[in-house]
Structures are given as structure tokens and as C-alpha cells.
Simulated assay, not measured.
Amino acid sequence: MIPFGGLFAGAVLLALLLDAVFGEPDWLWRRMPHPVVFFGKAISFFETRFNRPKDQSALLGRLAGTFSLAILLLLGCALGTGIQLGLMELGGVGGVLIAVIASTLLAQKSLYEHVERVAVPLSQSDLQGARAAVSMIVGRDTSKLDEAGVTRAAIESLAENYSDGIVAPLFWLVLFGLPGLICYKIVNTADSMIGHRNERYLYFGWAAARLDDVLNLIPARLTMILLLFSPVSLHRSRTVAFQSWTRFFADARRHRSPNAGWPEGAMARRLDIALSGPRYYEGVLVDEPFVNDTGRRQIGADDIVLALKLYGRACQCQFVIVALLGTGALI
């Protein structure tokens, strides 16, 4: 049951529809900053003023980062609460405006389009074009990737970003309204900017990285369920994909991320492919274990198409689930 009643439930459903249909319209964001840009500028404001990696101890660095994040979350919560309360007073018009705002912080269509841009040149044997396209959505070095490596990178990005770019913000929106959505996006943006284990951000970004892990804990596992159980015909049956649960959980726990292994593992098993594995970061080979290491490793554009098909069906299923929750709000 969605806690803010039927009007808000309708706004959430409309937000999903708006995002699915319109995505991130370039004409709009060329004329005005995206909300995430504001979050990024606010994070940079605190980071440049309070992060002193050469002068701070580990404790002081973590305290500075935690303090900065706490202030940002308080501001985000106040902003989200004020907007939501004000708009809910406007009735249906306010509900539409809430939907418009929420849709800008979801990424169903844009994620589909970014991953599809990798499949197109790959299907035309344009490896350079595919590397360029996948470099826009992953952080690893792409210059040495072969066809299978590009494919794995694209599908991994699809699985991970489905979790933290769609399921997680939707989860916190349903639970806590716009304040929950805004606060989640602040943390997620902070993690992507300062949650790195390098000399500059190791301590200052600690709170952002840890809180992002916590906020994605449940959504990552919900994403796994959506990907595993969404009814769509792929290479192998869902019955086969559900076998060897012990290995599935072991794969997820071996992943470098406490959360990404769950959606990646589900995607890998539904497609019968191996994901993750060794990759280069800043010229250094990182020997990561494979997820679903018995799956196919010679993969290509057709597998990206199948992954997008599964992703699309999972998005449809999540819409139905939210609609059912909204119906509960009306009872």
C-alpha cells in the first residue's frame, strides 16, 4: 500500500509512464539544468570546502564527509517535503506536477537507449563505435574490449543501472514520497562523485559509499526478483535459470559490490551468459570472478537485444506491481 493515498499513487504511475514515453528530453535539459546537476553542484560545494585529504586524519575525513552528507540530506528532505505538501494541496494538478518532477529522477527510457546504442554498431561489426558507445555508460577502460567484452559491459551496466537508476529510486519514492526519492538521488549522486577508494575520496566519500550500499540493499534484491521472474521467452527456460540457487547466492556475494551481483546474477542466468570477470581500470587489469561462470562467454549484439527485451518486460511488471499497491491505497 502506498502511504500517501490514491492521488499520490496515481502520480507515481504517471511518473513511470512519462519516463517510459519521454525519457530525458534533450531539448529540455539543454535549456535548463537537470535536477541531478544541482545535486552534483551541492556535493562539490561541500567537497571543495571540507575535504582536505592531505591535512585530515581518517577520522576527521570521515566526519567531514558524514557532516556534509547529513546537511545535504536534511536540505533534500526539507525540499521534497515542502514541494510534496504544497502540490498535494492542488489536487489533480498537483499530482501531475509531482509525476513530472519524479519522472526526471527515473531512467527507464534513457537506460534502454544508452544500452541500445551499444548493440547497433556491434551488430554492424563496428567494434570501435561499440567501444565508444559503451564508454558512455561504464567506468572501466574500453579501448581493449573485444566483442564479448563490450557486450558484457553493456549488459552489466543495464542490470546495475536498472537497480540503482530505476528500482531503487522508485522504491524510496513509493515508501517516502518525493523526500525519499530526492534523498536517495543525493546519496546515489554523491557515491558516483566521491564514493571512490582513491587518495582524495577514501575518507571523505566513506559515508556516501556506505549509505548508498544500505539504500540499495533491498532494491537490488527486488531487481533480482523482477529479472528472474519476468515472463519473457529467452534462450533458456526460467526453470533452468532458477536451478543451483546455492551457486547463484555465492556469485552475488563474490561480486565486488554488495548489491550489483544480485541483478547481474539474475540477468546472467536468464540469458545463460557469464558476466563480470577481468577488466581494466586506468590501465590496470583487475581480476574479478565471473558471475555465472558456466554461462556462455562468446556473446554479442544479439545478447544485448535479449537483455533489453528482459529489461523491458521487468519494467512492465514493476508498473503492474505499483498499480496493485496503488489500488491498495484506495481501499
Results as ranks from 00 to 15, higher is better:
residue 5 G to M: 05
residue 7 L to M: 14
residue 16 L to S: 07
residue 17 L to H: 00
residue 19 D to I: 12
residue 22 F to G: 01
residue 24 E to G: 00
residue 25 P to A: 07
residue 26 D to F: 00
residue 26 D to W: 00
residue 30 R to W: 03
residue 31 R to Q: 11
residue 32 M to Q: 11
residue 32 M to E: 04
residue 38 F to E: 05
residue 39 F to P: 07
residue 40 G to S: 01
residue 44 S to W: 02
residue 51 N to I: 00
residue 56 Q to T: 00
residue 59 L to E: 03
residue 61 G to R: 00
residue 63 L to D: 02
residue 64 A to M: 13
residue 66 T to V: 01
residue 67 F to K: 01
residue 70 A to G: 07
residue 72 L to E: 04
residue 87 L to H: 11
residue 90 L to T: 06
residue 96 V to R: 04
residue 101 I to T: 02
residue 102 A to P: 12
residue 102 A to S: 15
residue 120 V to F: 09
residue 122 L to Y: 00
residue 128 Q to A: 13
residue 133 A to F: 06
residue 138 V to Q: 04
residue 138 V to N: 09
residue 140 R to M: 01
residue 148 A to D: 07
residue 153 A to M: 09
residue 154 A to C: 06
residue 157 S to W: 08
residue 158 L to W: 12
residue 163 S to W: 06
residue 167 V to E: 05
residue 169 P to W: 11
residue 172 W to M: 05
residue 172 W to S: 05
residue 173 L to I: 06
residue 184 Y to S: 08
residue 189 T to K: 10
residue 195 G to M: 08
residue 198 N to K: 08
residue 200 R to N: 02
residue 201 Y to Q: 03
residue 206 W to L: 06
residue 206 W to N: 08
residue 210 R to F: 04
residue 215 L to A: 08
residue 218 I to L: 14
residue 230 S to N: 04
residue 234 L to S: 06
residue 235 H to P: 01
residue 235 H to F: 12
residue 236 R to I: 15
residue 242 F to T: 11
residue 244 S to W: 07
residue 245 W to N: 07
residue 247 R to N: 12
residue 250 A to D: 15
residue 253 R to E: 11
residue 260 A to L: 04
residue 263 P to K: 02
residue 271 L to N: 10
residue 278 P to Q: 13
residue 284 V to S: 10
residue 285 L to K: 15
residue 287 D to Y: 12
residue 290 F to T: 01
residue 290 F to A: 11
residue 292 N to V: 04
residue 296 R to Y: 00
residue 298 Q to A: 14
residue 298 Q to P: 03
residue 303 D to Y: 08
residue 306 L to V: 00
residue 309 K to L: 15
residue 314 A to N: 03
residue 315 C to E: 13
residue 319 F to W: 15
residue 320 V to G: 11
residue 320 V to Q: 06
residue 324 L to R: 03
residue 328 G to Y: 10
residue 330 L to Q: 03
